[in-house]
Simulated assay, not measured.
Amino acid sequence: MKKLIEIAALAVLTAGALSAGVQAQPAPTVGTGAGFHDPRSPIKPLQEREGVLAWALLSSVSTKVEKNKLIPVFPAQVRALDKQKVRVQGFMMPLEPGDKQQHFLLSAVPTSCAFCVPAGPEGLIEVRSKQPVRYSLEAITLEGQLSVLSDDPYGMFYRLTDGQALKP
């Protein structure tokens, strides 16, 4: 799954840049940002808000290779968020069919392709919500307990449990 996320993120970046007439940039690596927001997207990018965890902080993670595995190296500020109640905003990526979701990914950038992952693991949060959350193309804000994951079998860096959707 880790490799799939990396490949999908690279494909989204490359396709978006080429179709927008943007000169290709060097291939991104995991741990270099929260994802690529296509400038042609009708969906506005996220704006940082007071009291809401910033994706710039979450994406400040770096990685190292250890025993053929990609291991996240979290700054102290990010490690301090482990098991803390936080508010995050982002774009929903459903993992199951239906218009209401209790298990989904939250992304720092909207998807530009139904089959593509818009960011690497530093730009995604796996969410398990208390109540189903209605799918929306617009950004949503959630509150829940954040886990900072050092060795997730699926390659995720963050998980939000007991999530609750907040009113915009």
Rank of each mutant, 00 (worst) to 15 (best):
V133R: 12
A80Y: 05
G123Q: 04
Q89V: 02
R40M: 11
A80E: 14
R159T: 14
Q84M: 13
D99F: 04
H37M: 02
V12L: 12
T32C: 13
Q164G: 11
S112V: 03
G31W: 11
R159Y: 09
V117F: 09
L4I: 07
V12Y: 02
L70E: 12
V12T: 11
L166T: 08
V12K: 08
Q25E: 14
G98K: 01
P72C: 10
Q84T: 14
A15R: 08
A17S: 15
V78E: 12
Y135D: 03
F115W: 09
R49D: 01
S150C: 02
A139D: 08
R134W: 01
R128I: 07
G123Y: 04
E126G: 00
V86M: 06
S41Q: 04
V52T: 10
S147D: 13
I71V: 15
L142Q: 13
T14C: 05
K100Y: 09
V86A: 08
L142D: 12
L53E: 04
T161Y: 03
K67G: 01
M156L: 15
L105A: 00
T32F: 07
E50K: 14
A76I: 04
L105D: 06
V22M: 05
M156A: 12
A56Y: 02
P94A: 14
L166Y: 06
A24H: 03
S150F: 05
F157G: 07
Q89E: 09
Q101F: 10
G120C: 01
E122T: 10
M1V: 13
A20L: 06
K67L: 04
Q101K: 10
K69D: 09
K100W: 00
R79Q: 15
A139N: 09
S112A: 02
E143K: 12
P121E: 07
E96A: 11
F104Y: 14
S60A: 14
